[in-house]
């Protein structure tokens, strides 16, 4: 099982990195109203059970991968095929 974790700054949290990216995109001529920069973490797990894998990755997010004060996370699971 592979898991991809998307970590994003929560809505309302100032994201200076996203603002800088937005400014640069505008300079390139792209009309962009907002940009937010997060983080992608790809994990390879030895679990076969989706439910267990999801619960495990959720614990990883709560304990380390995201800081719940400022970040939200989204877990995507892909079974090895």
């Amino acid at each position: 099982m592979k898991a991809t974790v998307l970590v994003r700054p929560k809505p309302g949290i100032l994201d200076p990195q996203g603002q800088a990216v937005q400014g640069s995109l505008q300079q390139l001529g792209f009309a962009v109203d907002a940009a937010r920069v997060g983080r992608v973490i790809d994990l390879e797990l030895d679990d076969d059970n989706r439910g267990e894998a999801h619960a495990k990755v959720e614990r990883m997010c709560e304990q380390l991968l995201a800081n719940p004060l400022i970040e939200s996370y989204e877990i995507q699971l892909v079974e090895d095929g």
Binding site: I13, L14, P16, Q17, A20, N67, L69, I70
Partner: peptide, 16 residues
């Protein structure tokens, strides 16, 4: 802060 011994969190400077 990350260890939970103090409240809050430190983020990248607003000025980057």
């Amino acid at each position: 802060c990350e260890a939970g011994l103090l409240p809050g969190v430190l983020r990248p400077n607003r000025s980057l």
